[in-house]
Design a protein around this nucleic acid. Structure first.
Lengths: 118, 118
DNA sequence: TATACTGTTATATAATTATATAACACTAGA
DNA sequence: TCTAGTGTTATATAATTATATAACAGTATA
């Protein structure tokens, strides 16, 4: 789901955009060959300057995820599919956490710490 | 666990420091009243400039997590303990993901996307 | 009291990130 | 061919983040 960038998160906007688009590809919402929205549409969706969108697309291009066609648009180039099982594991975990009224920030903090400790 | 800041992650160093210290408090490794390492020690641990440590401590102070004593040190002020159950849920999830050889970056991407979608 | 630790304040500089704005170039379709 | 949509390139400016460096001030202890 592409959505407004969080300008107070501390994470640079262009990286948030990179991550959101990667997630779309990861989850299969954007498949190989799909055309992205135009730069100027993305600019509105993310609510940032056109140069910020460009920087994000440039990074995705350099990593091989998308490619550009002059005058036409950007297209998904690489299709990495994550095992459905992985998504299920995470969905189950997220559901449990939400059941316990944990907020996203706390969850991520613990997730990161647990990941890097064990 | 306090560790070197990742200078290529895109997340500002001072925020990484804030998060690491918060995690320590969250997980109970730093309890109410505990003294933090000195600024100059933290500077070495995180491998950043002293002003960057200071910025992080300033933020933690403004959020009420720690307090300073001139000439003595910084101390943990607030003790928010997360239910052990939550930690277990996340530990279990992380273990499963690692069993499936998922890398941290991918895991976080999916986690964030799943969290914000459902 | 002297000293070696603490935290505190300050200034200058550089790199990165984001904005505003404009103009140019390619493509598809009327 | 014209036009409206694409991507592309460029310049100037501002805000944020991080560094280097120095000096000052409080505290505890030998």
């Amino acid at each position: 789901m592409l959505r407004k960038v969080d300008k107070h998160s501390g994470v640079p906007a262009y990286l948030q955009i990179v991550n959101m688009i990667k997630s779309e590809i990861l989850l299969g919402n954007l498949q190989k060959g799909s055309q992205l929205s135009s730069i100027r549409e993305l600019q509105q969706i993310f609510d940032v300057n056109i140069n910020t969108v460009l920087k994000a697309l440039e990074k995705l291009k350099s990593e091989g995820y998308i490619e550009a066609e002059q005058g036409v648009g950007y297209f998904v180039k690489k299709d990495f599919d994550v095992d459905k099982k992985i998504i299920e594991i995470i969905k189950t975990c997220v559901a449990k956490l939400k059941d316990n009224s944990i907020d996203y920030y706390t969850a991520i903090l613990i997730f990161e710490e647990v990941w890097k400790n064990e």
